[in-house]
Design a protein around this nucleic acid. Structure first.
Lengths: 285, 285
DNA sequence: TTCCATTATCCCATATTATGAGAATCTGCA
DNA sequence: TGCAGATTCTCATAATATGGGATAATGGAA
């Protein structure tokens, strides 16, 4: 493992990753940054920090709101719209999600992604102005509480579970998922086998949720699909039915997604990438 | 200008920019991409394309939805929420925007950014379910039609106007802003001098809008603030009043933003970056 | 199950390109 | 008008991104 003499400074992330790290600085507490502050925080040179910020501004991911003041940029909003409009999951899942709203009992349908050891709600659907949930679009939630989260958790591969456990021992215990790794795994097993998870007021009081995992491509979980009721209107009798509906929806989603990916073939297959004639004008150098 | 022997391939954009270019591929028509297709489209090697996509997935800006299928990722949704929650413009402008909704006439308040020769609506505020506008949050709109757009256009620096003109001669003419550059500039002058722009059904039929520019830091326009009415409820009498209100709001916004940026000083100044004690754990190297 | 077409990762020498230090310039507020 | 801070430049150097192709994983079909 002889590394000539580099290390010392950067945690050997590629410069690409280092630059994207700038985006992580912008939090609810500190939504506006100075280039110098960012440089300091990330251990970058002033020059480099200016270069990064410059690039990111050029891409619209950052924006200069005033002299020495940068914040997240408009491109993010544009990209978000692109997702709302054409996210493949939503495109496919839209119908099935709407179907689940059928008998209106104040329920909300959530489509969530697994992201960085967190659950992130990416799409939300309801009949009207509905119950105030902690799960808001775009808000990362912990992976250990609530049906939405556990539906994912229960299907994570061993390796990942182990990592998660050692890094979140306290949270796991606090969520009642066991005081040892073995207990943790044992607690998840029935959830995985059952194929769906029901939770009562684990995240928000007076809220009941049913969640099922969502598989992308092969076997890997990429998120979950769940339905959430205000507990006083929760149709307990139909729990199994609802769960089955969710599972069916999830399966349809996974299948369809697999199909979307398919057609690199030249035939009639359409959908995917399909490099059009490429008329983009580029300086021919 | 001797450049040893590089050029030929990349349009001499930094690798950072090249990588971010991947994000631009995802459009409404093609929301899912194969790595190979992306490589082809952008003129990248397979290896490099995989590296870029890998990085972007790591940052959550992209996501692998299935084998060989990538789409925009959840981090974008998270960042968008961060903006909705804490965008400095919105944070400051929230109150003034709300005030403008006071006598409910079905109006909508728009906060837009200038972005890449387009107007991009970043925040939208209304009383209830309201008129269907072409201006949707995150949708880029042309710079030549509508009060929202022209309010920005009228205050762009000469250089920028010239560029814009040569690249959009047809659009300018079609918008009735002149058939020569001089006419174009002449058409904008009164709008700039008046300080606000009123438009009738220029973007959507039966819609009237009043827009004022928004200045960031120094003199540069960074966006616009506008109010939009269904034309049958438009209070023509109060046009001047409304415009003045908007201008006041805009001025307040600009001023406050300038303040936000200020306090790199150690004193009582708070707000901005303020590198806190920095307890973040980093390998001390 | 086995096979096949793709997708994805690895490897490593090389050159491209990002980097850092500080001077020079610009900016906007007082 | 002046000044402090913000931003851009310059350039030599080292770091590291690149590319080509071999290799390994993957998932669907037979």
């Amino acid at each position: 493992m002889s590394r000539t003499a580099s290390e010392s400074r950067h945690a050997m992330k590629s410069s690409l990753a280092r630059m994207l790290g700038v985006l992580d600085l912008f939090s609810e507490d500190e939504p506006v940054w100075t280039v110098d502050a960012a440089a300091l925080q990330l251990g970058l040179t002033r020059a480099t920090a200016y270069r990064y910020v410059g690039e990111l501004c050029g891409a619209g991911l950052l924006m200069r709101v005033a002299q020495g003041a940068y914040s997240l940029g408009p491109r993010i909003i544009e990209l978000d719209r692109q997702i709302r409009q054409r996210d493949p999951l939503l495109a496919i899942g839209g119908r099935v999600m709407r179907d689940l709203l059928a008998p209106d009992r104040g329920q909300v349908i959530l489509l969530c992604d697994l992201f960085r050891d967190k659950v992130l709600c990416t799409h939300q659907m309801s009949n009207g102005a509905s119950l105030a949930l902690s799960y808001t679009r775009g808000r990362p939630m912990p992976l250990f509480r609530g049906a939405t989260a556990k539906a994912i958790l229960a299907h994570l591969p061993q390796r990942r579970l182990m990592q998660l456990y050692v890094q979140n021992q306290a949270a796991v215990a606090h969520a009642g998922l066991g005081n040892t790794y073995d207990e943790f795994v044992a607690a998840l097993k029935p959830l995985r086998q059952q194929g769906y998870v029901v939770s009562h007021a684990e995240v928000d009081p007076s809220v009941v949720g049913i969640g099922v995992p969502l598989f992308g491509g092969g076997r890997a979980v990429i998120g979950s699909l769940s339905i959430v009721f205000p507990s006083e209107r929760y149709p307990r009798r139909q729990e199994a039915h609802l769960a089955a509906d969710l599972q069916r929806a999830s399966a349809a989603l996974s299948a369809e997604i697999g199909r979307q990916a398919a057609p690199p073939r030249g035939g009639r297959g359409r959908a995917a990438p399909s490099q059009r004639a490429k008329p983009r004008s580029r300086a021919p150098a």
